[in-house]
Design a binder for these strands. Structure first.
Lengths: 201, 201, 201, 201
DNA sequence: TATGAATGAGCATTCATTCAT
DNA sequence: AATGAATGAATGCTCATTCAT
């Protein structure tokens, strides 16, 4: 029935291992995320991970896919529910912040993986595409507002890169800045980019 | 004369090794930056590096200090030369972009080090302070404009974090996005944050 | 009835597993012959193999016994049917070649096992005896011809080792030499050793 | 000066490690030949091997090259010194046997490597070419005698394969057959293949 | 000062075997 | 009888660091 039919217990184990990988990634960072530590967290032996995922690379892939799925499920409906591009942009920013608030550790894990997984010889890294997609999605929202005349005449790509950059700066704050106020920051971000994108009054 | 008196040859060696470390970091990424590769680049043996710097950690510290020094020398005077906060912010952004244009490899090396150097047990990472300083500097510029009434009433810290985030998104583009236009992006960034910070017209 | 009474289904399972082990050994080689791969080939789980055979070692033993049985059944009657030692030697060689022609995979599997199964600390390897028996059988044929005066006065053991060596060189050819002509080679082998063993004319 | 300039001490280490690898291969067999055991034999740490050879594969390659060099140096001049093809064949056989007598362990090591190094998915194995060369060399000697009329009209390739097979049967005897008489066997081999190849009297 | 040889801990991975269901 | 989940030991490899020369 399911696309890749798996035992129930198999699915449970996979989910548990992914959860433990997220935990270790978020708590100890990519560099300290070894199969041994993940196995220790799950109170299993390292072989189990290879058994269920084939290898570390595939486990990481599964982590990314899982977190990306959760993030998408959370954010996409919120954006599509808006009736103006301006509200769409607001929903995009708020959705991202909401995800960070609700799924702190999965987010941090995702960031660790995306920023630290090395590519070949200084190449782009296997998860660069993930970031590319996020920018492309953002560009769609911006294009929408451009067409409706809600937004001023900026370079869409530059704006998308900058919004994404501003959003991507948040996880680092969340991690190590105890005084960081996510709700305040969300409001400020929305205001910032509303002012920056709106057609001049 | 110098605070830590070193022979001339000693200084030359250190400079050479730092330059090679920058090269390897920028070309191959943090993960592939081993002492062996740096030594190979410098056509010396690995022992020399330990001899002159004590260890890999100290070498990386020296790289960061060196690049930060160059960046500061380039940017600080430009900002201080401005007479309005608005021009100061413009100079901050343009200075950062100019640095990226003139010193691509040192910048990329710095980014690699700051983003990848692991801390202890998920701690802040030894170069988080560096980012903190950059944000603090930015806050000063923003505070200046707040006091003079040039800027609207935003949360200084949130704005600083967002500007920094937008700037920090650039190196990644520079690395792997062949169509990226730094000059266009610089102009867009200045416009973006001018609109976002100015007192409502 | 049978010495080790087994249910029918048990015997069928064992036969199936042995057949799959032969397949994997012949197709992928000893090094790639893992219980997991044999189980995959048989579309069963690895536990079944351990269940029916006790372990990998015993499975391999069963493979060897099975193939040796087939080989013996094919070759021994052919040799015994001859009336002269010279014809006996011819039948020995032709029988071996015929077996290779008819049972390529079992033969290759057998060769893989015999040549690759490691002994303890460089000891003889558990299937050295198998080879010993083959040589001993050959010596009997040679002794027969010596007694009847058909053969010249050579050292029986040396001759047996050499004939066996020449025969054992064939599987390797069969495997990787696409131009190898088994029928031609069989005729040449018979001629070669007929000339080498006959009483000088 | 030297093709690959190496320190003296580097060359000595390499030679020592190769010698220890030969020792372990010959004494314990391919399956038990791990970097750990070779390192133990050499009383060094496993890292040294990787340091000097890059990896296990390259070490094995070096072992093969070294032994092949010694074998070639020993045998080729002996064969070339002969004035008839018949003597050339005799020299080929005697040269091989002499090598086995003088360099038992290197030979056994070579045999272990050639027969046990696995290829991909049941492919030929990386050292199959080595065996191919040996057969080709033998074919040259046989072709020589065919042209001079010393040899009868046999299939050269079949004969070469058979002679090689008979020779390759010897190492196994040397290893585990305590009663094996190499000198006797050499004489018998020469007689055998002289009778098998000569033009009928 | 500089070299390069050597170390040793840490890593992912493979695989025969075991066992509860 | 069969499953498949889990184990744990073993292996090759990488790399920062140390040290005698």
């Amino acid at each position: 029935m399911s696309p890749k039919s798996r035992t129930f217990i198999e699915q449970a184990r996979r989910a548990q291992i992914i959860a433990c990988a997220v935990e270790v990634l978020a708590d100890q960072g990519y560099a300290h995320t070894t199969l041994a530590r993940i196995a220790e967290q799950a109170k299993i032996s390292t072989g189990v991970i290879s058994y269920h995922f084939g290898g570390k690379k595939q486990l990481i892939e599964a982590v990314v896919a899982e977190v990306a799925r959760v993030a998408t499920d959370l954010m996409v409906p919120r954006i599509l529910a808006q009736s103006t591009a301006s509200d769409g942009l607001r929903a995009y920013i708020e959705g991202n912040m909401e995800f960070m608030r609700l799924h702190r550790k999965p987010l941090l894990a995702l960031v660790e993986v995306i920023t630290h997984t090395p590519g070949e010889e200084g190449g782009p890294g296997p998860y660069a595409a993930q970031a590319e997609v996020a920018i492309a999605d953002l560009e769609k929202v911006l294009g929408w507002g451009k067409r409706t005349g809600e937004f001023r005449d900026f370079d869409q790509r530059s704006m998308a890169i900058s919004i994404r950059g501003a959003i991507d700066a948040v996880p680092g704050r969340l991690l190590h800045d105890p005084g960081f106020d996510l709700d305040l920051h969300t409001r400020e971000l929305v205001t910032l980019f509303t002012l920056a994108t709106r057609r001049d009054p």
